[in-house]
Design a binder for these strands. Sequence first.
DNA 1: GGTATTGCAGAAAACGTTTTCCATGCTAAG
DNA 2: CTTAGCATGGAAAACGTTTTCTGCAATACC
Lengths: 339, 339
Amino acid sequence: MNIQEIAKRAKVSTATVSRAINRVPTVNPQLAKRVWKVVEELGYYPNTQARALVSGRSRIFGLIVSEITNPFFPEIVQVFETIAVQHQYEILLTSTVNDPKRMESSVRRMIERRVDGVAVMTFGMEEVLLEDLKLRKVPLVFVDVGPPRPRVSNIRIDYLHGIRQAVQHLAALRHQKIAFISGPHRLKSSMAREQAFMSSMQEIGLVVDPALILEGDHTMEGGMEVCAKMLARPTKPTAVLCSNDMTAIGVMRKSHETGLRIPQDLSVVGFDDIRLAQFVLPALTTIQMSQTELARLAFNALLAEVGREIPSPNGTEYVVKTNLILRESTGLAPSIISR
Amino acid sequence: MNIQEIAKRAKVSTATVSRAINRVPTVNPQLAKRVWKVVEELGYYPNTQARALVSGRSRIFGLIVSEITNPFFPEIVQVFETIAVQHQYEILLTSTVNDPKRMESSVRRMIERRVDGVAVMTFGMEEVLLEDLKLRKVPLVFVDVGPPRPRVSNIRIDYLHGIRQAVQHLAALRHQKIAFISGPHRLKSSMAREQAFMSSMQEIGLVVDPALILEGDHTMEGGMEVCAKMLARPTKPTAVLCSNDMTAIGVMRKSHETGLRIPQDLSVVGFDDIRLAQFVLPALTTIQMSQTELARLAFNALLAEVGREIPSPNGTEYVVKTNLILRESTGLAPSIISR
DNA sequence: GGTATTGCAGAAAACGTTTTCCATGCTAAG
DNA sequence: CTTAGCATGGAAAACGTTTTCTGCAATACC
């Protein structure tokens, strides 16, 4: 069933059918009604492929996330999809599993499908592979990637804001030996968080013990491993700030296994504020980076760029704030209590 | 950049370019090489929309899940996507959030995009809306929906196998008052689990106390609520079997809050075996329903149906087994210990 | 050596839309 | 009353492929 069939039955030309369906105002209301009647009767749905072919716009956005099984991302996908649907956009989802090969193949597939834009939510993964996209003048939006270029927007996360709050919160609870467990060093976002931690510490005159800066991998298992390593060393921290919530949850679990009570013996702060953070025991104090806002911003950035006929000269930069959420996993430093 | 440009530069016709790219064997190797050289040079990617338009196959499968933020689903999405990529298929993901409106709109969008098949992983949601798809002879695969029809495959979950194991495991631990917290009653899969529980109990001569059959909603919050309700009643169970892991985790949490120790005071069994189940404290004994297998089966069912030129007369039925995984949340019934 | 058969590449049709261009009929202005 | 201008709908081109059909040359067979 196609537009010709409709045209025949409504006794008009295909042009009129097209115009009626797209609600072009110049078409005679009576004809339009006739067309719509036939459309309803036959349950006709236009063929998007043909539409895209001639209009040059596919109404598809690509969404690249680093790992859909990481609880941080489903929320983003959900929100992104919801907004997309509202704007009659479709999404092509790719979970790269941090594999450059998959990243490459997904970029290629997106180009082949002629996406109108791509949101790259991998938090600083190798952008080399994205040259292809840039070259093709597809609108892009990244997280934490500089510097801006034409057609490429960037969402900058203001890590410092939340991390500084967290550090000061811990300091106020008399913690001095504060550890930091980062994410993989190859991620830009990961390093940015570490930097923010360091400068927040120095700002209030706390020394950063290099032995208390450790590298995790943003998984719960990784958190457990690093925690074990950390607790085996001579200088033990009284508080630990983690680069994401899964790591923090791993730390909590391993601490529990080794008999450490949280927050009495060790305070733990996470990062991200995934839903799960509210539900672990004790509930995790964490730094919120709103997934909803991130998804919304990313979508709007793409939509804006698609709407522009002359590309923005230097892209646009958006900022997402981070904020400390107080829950139950932080408390007074143990030395204070025992005194 | 299009196929004509390539044809011009390689000094062949567009037909030859098409044949070369699609590796049709009859094309002269020398010509093919010339074509490929130009393709590489220009970084040409074929336009999938045009391809789909003429070939009638979009190489897109729809994937409808009930809620991507429910940890059960990301794993399915991940596996489904991975296999899809291997077969040069794309997926159109929809998370219905259990909203019939969204379900309807997503079905419509999938038809418009001319998907080659749809996997409906909503575990028994209102199929009424899917009439549209059936009518259009799009290959479909469902979970727990009968009876089979042409072009519609079904994955039947063998709930009884795992649930019977769980009930017998609890009985062996001397539990007699075993509660069951179901999912929403409108889900077929939910009722099937409840049925399996009942018959497993009766099979070994245990009485099912109607007061101990409760309805949850497959979320952690729901689990906590139902648990509170359950513990407020006069007849308290010594073990509880939950219709999914999130519910079980909610139960564990609420029990903990009210001072009940698990498994000493209450044994808890989940269903699904999401990754998180291994990581809660204590690790959750649960009934595994392999998400990997489910995704793989669903994809293969669609692929098989697409390959067939004459549709299977009555669809195909696949079966996924369920199995009890023993962890730490189940133990001897409390009355035994105190004796 | 002439005709039938095969192999292979190019021309052109087809896919289902949107959109440009053109024709028609009407209104309004001179 | 005539003509310019405008509104509206139809014809046809265009989008970028695949695929069928056609034609030509080379080989095989009698």
